[in-house]
Nucleic acid binder design. Structure first.
Length: 592
DNA sequence: TGGGGTCAG
DNA sequence: ACTTCTGACCCCA
């Protein structure tokens, strides 16, 4: 999968085949499996550490070990603060208006590496700087961009140094004016180094006094990159672009399996291809299912243009998922076992990532949910079946089914095991059968379960100093409740459970209240003959576990017989008609 | 919203 | 024999 830098020094690469690696380095240590928890913790701590330096909170994570920082505001502030009479002895303020927190630096030099490394072309970085002797603030405007990047490079160096001091992590940084350029600049010198892409960023030809034209360093930098190396241009898109530029499809296909091509097509090759531009790229990359405006976007990337903002730090993830892969997963008992394992991790992850310490003394629990995922998804990757007869093998990777996440998972009084047990029985297993109607022969190589569709809980702030934000709470209530609104009152209760994959909102429900937790307003159940409906809220959309049989096609079937269509509550062992299980489960979730 | 695709580390 | 375990965002119906 991957290897550390120690191994790379010995000639190993990531993605290398194990037998190759063993040949090269017989004393290689191979570690099977992973332990992501520690990486997640390290990542979070790293991220928090860097976030504390920013003023804007613009800290965007890319995976576990990369992060974009938008430090435009710090740099701008310190640019204004510079004393042009003595740039070599500058001070970078890390806090606004506090000259005591920061570091000294030489504002006439880039910290660390630059691209180009030794700018000895007519555009000399040093020449572009105001001279300390010239003493004219006007000169500072000679090239403010260079100064800003110099400031950025010193800030980066300070951050890297602090990170190593305080957290023990060495790091690599790229400094430029946008995400794509900084990311690529960061690749130039690794590990444990930094690279600043220095101006000019723009091509200029109309210099006075007949001076030589100046190529943009952005173009110079990007041109040598293989198109597939440009962030945002991945496997599929680089394939399409390559095919077009080389004007022939195959031949190099084997060569690029691991992303390397014999016949590399560089950004320059693409950029200078006859007629190349956003329109041609749109025709190459566009089509049904592709991103709108992809041609223009790709063209921008090839030119180093990226106006996407560095995202603000997010309080809750949009999705949490757990997956594992298997040599073979073929029987229902095995599947149930693995679902239990995965669901246990998932519930634990929900607790660590979505639960916050409750500082409200009125609240009954010590923890509160930051967000409630509304949806549960089960995905699998069936191993593609071999086709001896020649019929087309469909090339899909993963298939999935999703449905409402039952609310009992938010119950903090139940044990994780009890929650997992119910989740598997009531939600995951039915979804699995929907996903794999065939009773056997799935040959699964992967199973993933995820919670998505986060509805963020009203923040704690609303209730302190100034009272509760009623309007916002009603708005939230509206959002949370809308899926339970009465939509089709004419559907008789019987039909609720009659079909396994009945559309989920065919029946009429009013919220019973308990999917809201903690401090939230609860809905008033409606009166009268809707009383029955009102308790049947929660997971009744899902198939109810029953005694299943298999029809002649090997399809899962719900048993129609009333006698046998019974379910046992995993919690209290009560036996009841299957259709009542959802309501019963709801009852448990309401228990104090 | 559900299902799927692409891209990323 | 195109990794694994994620997470973000986009498209279409």
């Amino acid at each position: 999968m991957t290897c550390n830098y120690e191994a790379r020094r010995r000639g190993l690469r990531k993605l290398q085949l194990i037998h190759e690696a063993k040949k090269l380095v017989p004393d290689i240590v191979i570690v099977l499996g992973e332990e992501l928890g520690r990486f997640r913790d390290a990542s979070k701590s790293l991220y928090k550490f860097l976030e504390a330096f920013t003023w804007s909170g613009k800290v965007e994570r890319l995976g576990f070990d990369e992060v974009f920082l938008d430090v435009t505001d710090l740099v701008q502030y310190n640019l204004v603060l510079l004393n042009y009479h003595d740039l070599p002895h500058s001070f970078f303020q890390l806090k606004r208006g506090d000259p005591t927190v920061g570091f000294s630096f030489d504002a006439t030099k880039i910290a660390g590496h630059s691209f180009p490394e030794n700018p000895n072309d007519p555009y000399n970085a040093q020449d572009a700087l105001p001279r300390s002797s010239s003493a004219l603030p006007d000169n500072a405007n000679k090239d403010p961009l260079l100064l800003r990047l110099i400031l950025g490079s010193h800030l980066a160096q300070h951050l890297r140094w602090s990170l190593e001091e305080e957290k023990g992590y060495t790091s690599t940084v790229g400094i430029a004016t946008n995400k794509i350029l900084s990311k690529l600049a960061g690749n130039v010198h690794k590990p444990k180094a930094q690279t600043t892409l220095i101006p000019p960023y723009e091509y200029s030809s109309d210099r006075p006094e007949g001076k030589i034209d100046h190529e943009s360093n952005v173009t110079k930098f990007l041109d040598s990159h293989d198109i597939g190396k440009i962030p945002g241009i991945g496997f599929k898109m680089s394939h399409k672009i390559r095919n077009h530029v080389l004007a022939r499809p195959a031949k190099f296909d084997e060569g690029l399996i691991y992303g390397e091509t014999k016949e590399s097509v560089t950004v320059r090759d693409v950029r200078l291809f006859p007629g190349m531009g956003p329109e041609l790229l749109e025709s190459i990359l566009g089509g049904p299912g592709t991103e709108r405006g992809i041609g223009g976007k790709a063209w921008n990337l090839l030119n180093g243009v990226d106006d996407t903002e560095v995202q603000q730090a997010k309080k809750v993830p949009t999705q949490i998922s757990i997956e594992d892969s298997y040599k073979q997963l073929d029987t229902l008992p095995e599947v149930v076992k693995e679902l239990r394992v995965l669901a246990t991790s998932l519930v634990r992850r929900m607790h660590t990532d979505l639960l916050e310490d409750n500082d409200d003394p009125d609240a009954e629990g010590a923890k509160r949910w930051l967000a409630h995922p509304k949806t549960l998804r089960l995905s699998t990757r069936p191993r593609p079946p071999l086709n001896p007869d020649g019929t087309r093998t469909r090339s899909f990777n993963r298939i999935s089914r999703s449905g409402p996440l039952p609310n009992f998972v938010f119950n903090l009084k139940d044990s994780v095991d009890a929650i997992v047990e119910k989740l598997v029985l009531i939600a995951l297993l039915p979804m699995f059968k929907k996903l794999h109607p065939q009773q056997s022969g799935w040959n699964l190589s992967l199973v993933n379960i995820a919670v998505t569709n986060m509805v963020e809980a009203a923040s704690e702030d609303g209730k302190h100093g100034g009272g509760r934000d009623i309007g916002r709470m009603f708005k939230r209530q509206e959002e949370v409740l809308k899926e339970w609104r009465v939509e089709d009152k004419d559907v008789p209760p019987d039909s609720i459970v009659s079909g396994a994959d009945r559309p989920s909102r065919a029946s009429a429900f009013q919220n019973g209240g308990s999917e809201l937790t903690g401090d939230e307003i609860q809905a008033e159940p409606s009166a009268g003959n809707e009383a029955l409906d009102s308790i049947m809220v929660g997971s009744e959309d899902m198939m109810i576990p029953t005694q299943n049989s298999v029809d002649e096609n090997g399809i899962w079937e719900e048993d129609e017989s009333d006698e046998e269509n019974r379910a046992t509550c995993p919690e209290c062992d009560a036996v009841m008609p299957a259709f009542a299980m959802a309501a019963h489960e709801r009852y448990h979730s309401l228990e104090e």
